[in-house]
């Protein structure tokens, strides 16, 4: 069986400008930030990003890498409004496909199941229909005759997710209270890159955690990246919580200054700078 371990740089080198990229996690929770930072060091741009948005979206938007965003929200959770995303929207510098949280989930499911759409009872009557003129409805062929939104599949060229543990083959494990939707992002994508806090032997995965914590199966994974602190400054329970002080700095520092201080060097330099300023 193939050893899929690679560096964050190697994972990002397989991405291309113009791709549709799914990013796992939720808001400022377990985001694959080390992979996003590697992406920011690369020349990859013109992306369509599909995300339950947090600082992943904010940073890529601030760096001008997003052509189109597909999202239901962008938030830092403890800071409700993401400042860099907000600035991008208010300056009109990115296109947006704004859909409901459940529509988003049904879209990922449709892609994972290789279906063109799934019916969803959300969106009708709201302005989601007006701002997405491409959305179509579907009527039940049964006696109820109910009309639904036909949520199109959110098929991805690539997915980036971060979990607590993984083996070298691509089996990924979450140890916190919420899996979010990382398995679906991987299943909806042509290629999935999983970063993790620690790579362990396969047998280690179920030594102290139950088998249902094995969220991602290796068949949908292309690359495994060991990235301790790889979700920083978002939370990665139970390994660590959100770095609220750093997030506040991220939200209140002008982007060029923040990027120069923390993103000019590699991941090691990022961590050193973050520790120095803590």
């Amino acid at each position: 069986m193939a050893d899929k371990t690679m560096t964050a740089e190697e994972a990002v080198s397989r991405l291309e400008s113009g791709m549709t990229l799914g990013i796992g996690g939720w808001g400022a929770r377990r985001k694959p930030m080390a992979l996003v930072r590697a992406l920011l060091r690369s020349p990859v741009t013109d992306l369509t990003v599909v995300s339950y948005g947090g600082p992943d979206v904010g940073m890529l938007a601030a760096a001008g890498r997003i052509r189109r965003l597909v999202a239901a929200f962008v938030t830092l959770d403890s800071i409700p409004l993401e400042p860099h995303y907000r600035a991008a929207r208010e300056s009109g510098s990115l296109e947006l496909t704004e859909i409901d949280e459940a529509m988003f989930l049904w879209g990922l499911r449709a892609a994972a199941h290789r279906l063109p759409f799934l019916p969803v009872r959300a969106g009708l009557g709201s302005d989601v229909m007006r701002i997405n003129p491409g959305l179509r409805t579907v009527t039940s062929p049964y006696d109820d005759g109910e009309t639904f939104v036909a949520m199109p599949a959110l098929r991805l060229d690539a997915a980036l997710v971060h979990v607590n543990r993984a083996d070298r083959l691509g089996n990924g494990q979450y140890l916190g209270p919420d899996p979010y939707f990382d398995d679906l992002f991987c299943a909806a994508a042509d290629a999935a890159y999983v970063s993790c806090e620690r790579i362990v032997d396969t047998a280690e995965l179920t030594k102290e955690a139950p088998p249902q914590s094995l969220l991602i199966t290796r068949q949908v994974v292309t690359g495994v990246v060991e990235a301790p602190g790889g979700a920083h400054f978002t939370s990665c329970a139970p390994d660590y919580g959100r770095d609220e002080a750093f997030q506040k700095r991220y939200a209140s520092t002008p982007w060029p200054e923040f990027a120069a201080r923390y993103l000019a060097g590699d991941e090691r330099a990022y961590r050193a700078a973050a520790e120095e300023d803590a």
């Binding site: 239901a72 949280e101 459940a102 969106g123 989601v128």
Partner: peptide, 17 residues
């Protein structure tokens, strides 16, 4: 091109239906 970007639609459409 919003004057002020807020949260996004979040789950409001699915909740209300």
């Amino acid at each position: 091109r919003p004057i002020r970007q807020l949260l996004g639609v979040r789950g409001a459409p699915v909740n209300t239906l």
